[in-house]
Design a binder for these strands. Structure first.
Length: 429
RNA sequence: GUGGGUGUAGCUCAGUAGGUAGAGCACCAGGUUGUGGCCCUGGAAGUCGCGGGUUCAAGUCCCGUCACUCACCCCA
């Protein structure tokens, strides 16, 4: 038997309704906030990711699916979406028409990591990016949108962490301070952190080893070293969040693994997820567009981990309403032929209808109708054909009534339609 | 890449001191000769992850391997 590739998964019919619900909800919200959908390819030139995410990052260094195509180009299955969105923004010169541009995209990303709960080699992200706005309110609005989304999904037990990483002016100073601080504390750091000290000292804040955590409690905080512009930017972001009643925690240890982030960064964490607890994350990336060959336009964005979101929702008892539908139980060839036509007619009336295509006993057809959770069953056999009227059974009340064969479809639809519960009863709060 | 746990029917699992497999649920049929959910009866369904070894005999012991899973790492 040929099996799934490691770290990849099928999203089964029992799960897709939830996925569709999540996607429909976020699309609606994003569009209300003025975002337009952009669909980007899954494959890009390797260089795009090396230059945006950062050549020294784990993602680029050891997690990308990279291969050489037949012409010798190095191509990579996208490990994240921002790089591609920026590439498209530049390539299609969106900035020329209007420097302010809000885009979203939904799709799979690929990273070759060891699979784990909440971590797959193909995983899905919802990405939103805003270009052309320096104003800190753009950062705040994006966070607002993100939290609004979590809210619509009725997600509980999540926390929002925010931080500022400073800009290209103040961050280097902070890095120096941090290196000085760490210089004579080698014995107090784990081997991983010793390595990080040289490569990316900010990451040490993320370490979970107790002694490292202990050591880092006395470490300098980036928030104390921000330059005046970064400081006021961060303050404004917080002011807007407060004004909007969005609860948050500032977390000066929140460091993100992609090199392009500047100033505001944020993460939404859910304890119920286990070790991989980040459901969403994002931040500002003011130098990225320029670094990739575009104009000097700022950017802010976030990514939501859909797989993790789904996991949270599945753990929170989700009752998605089902449409009521009809099952036709036919006995004998004559009735089956008539029923087959009716089934098609009902469907053309946009009414979900099914029948058994094999010649089975009424009992087994009823059982099947029950299993499919049909709300009504229409019973037709030779007897009904001769009498000119079929039997319509309401499966919840068990009431049965005779319905004339002449004009049957229209009659049944009018009889049944009013009780149809649409799937659009999602107007929560 | 590193470590722990687990791999027996579609699903959840049992399998005792090694003697070539069992339960519950699900499935199919019958009990009701034209009526679902409950109940009863019967049926179908397993290369015991894969490969090798020890043994008269291995699901059970040994080695290897693969997969799943959780954690490290990293991140959504």
């Amino acid at each position: 038997m040929i099996k799934l590739v490691r770290g990849f998964k099928d999203i089964l019919p029992t799960e897709t309704a939830l996925w569709q619900y999540v996607e429909a909800t976020v699309r609606e919200l994003l569009e209300d906030f003025g975002f337009a959908e952009l669909r980007i390819p899954i494959l890009e030139k390797t260089e795009l990711f090396a230059r945006s995410i950062g050549a020294g990052t784990d993602i680029v260094e050891k997690e990308m699916y990279t291969f050489t195509d037949r012409k010798g180009d190095s191509l990579t299955l996208r490990p994240e979406a921002t790089a591609s969105v920026v590439r498209a923004y530049i390539e299609h010169k969106f900035y020329a028409k209007d420097p302010v541009c809000k885009l979203y995209t939904i799709g799979p990303m690929f990273r070759r990591e060891r699979p784990q709960k909440g971590r797959y080699r193909q995983f899905y992200q919802i990405n939103a990016e805003v270009f052309g706005l320096h104003d800190p309110r753009a950062d705040a609005e994006l966070i607002l949108l993100l939290m609004k989304f979590m809210n619509r999904l009725d997600l509980s037990g999540i926390v929002l962490h925010i931080n500022s990483l400073g800009c290209h002016k103040c961050r280097p100073h902070f890095k120096d301070d941090l290196k000085t601080f760490l210089a004579n504390r080698s014995e107090q750091l784990c081997s991983d952190c010793l390595r990080r000290r040289d490569e990316n000292p900010l990451r040490i804040f993320d370490c979970k080893v107790p002694t490292c955590k202990e050591t880092m409690t006395d470490a300098p905080s980036i928030l104390d070293r921000l330059c005046s512009k970064c400081r006021s930017h961060f303050n404004t972001v917080q002011d807007v969040l407060k004004m909007s009643h969005i609860p948050y925690e500032t977390n000066h240890r929140l460091v993100r693994g992609l090199d392009y982030y500047t100033r505001t960064t944020f993460e939404v964490l859910a304890g119920a997820l286990g070790a991989q607890d980040a459901v969403a994350g994002g931040g500002r990336y003011d130098g990225l567009v320029k670094a990739l060959g575009g104009p000097d336009q700022p950017g802010v964005g976030f990514a939501i981990g859909v797989d993790r979101l789904i996991e949270l929702l599945a753990g929170q008892v989700q009752g998605l309403e089902k449409r009521s539908h009809l099952f036709i139980a036919a006995l004998g060839v004559r009735a089956q032929d008539r029923a087959f036509q009716w089934v098609q007619d009902f469907r053309m009336q946009r009414f979900r209808t099914e029948m058994d295509l094999e010649d089975r006993s009424l009992k087994s057809q009823m059982r099947r109708a029950d299993k499919l959770e049909a709300s009504y069953v229409l019973i037709v056999g030779d007897r009904e054909l001769d009498e000119g009227a079929a039997v319509l059974r309401n499966m919840t009340t068990k009431e049965q009534e005779r319905v004339p064969l002449r004009g049957l479809v229209g009659f049944v639809v009018s009889r049944i339609k009013p009780t149809t519960t649409g799937r659009n009863n999602e107007d929560r709060r």
